[in-house]
């Protein structure tokens, strides 16, 4: 299958290499292989693959990663605007997510 890639250069993912201790947790939790560990440091190798889920930042014990997380869901954003809340997804319960 052709690899699906979303928009170019839009994500808010930030890596502070100074703080990185190369524990490798980000490479384990990322569902899109955004990171690689090279020379004892994490590196963002597939930036446009990031979907801002926030798993990496959440599990980064040394707080080297940051990202503005949220749902990449147009219907959720519309709902949020109409109700004056943050974008909330209506979650389509894929069996892929378990």
């Amino acid at each position: 299958m052709k690899k699906l890639v979303y928009l170019k250069d839009v994500v808010t993912l930030q890596l502070d290499k100074e703080k990185c201790i190369a524990c490798g947790m980000c490479t384990k939790v990322c569902p899109h292989e955004v990171f690689e560990i090279t020379n004892r440091k994490a590196e963002i190798v597939n930036r446009d693959q990031c979907m801002e889920c926030g798993a990496c930042a959440k599990n980064c014990a040394s707080e080297a990663l940051s990202v503005k997380t949220g749902v990449g869901c147009a219907a959720g954003i519309i709902k949020g605007v109409l109700k004056g809340t943050e974008p909330t997804c209506s979650c389509s319960g894929s069996s892929a997510c378990c």
Partner: peptide, 20 residues
Amino acid sequence: SMNFTGASTYTSLSGVLKEM
């Protein structure tokens, strides 16, 4: 189709905002 971003497994909030 734009509404299908929510069902997809690879779209980011920043990206969806931009395309909207």
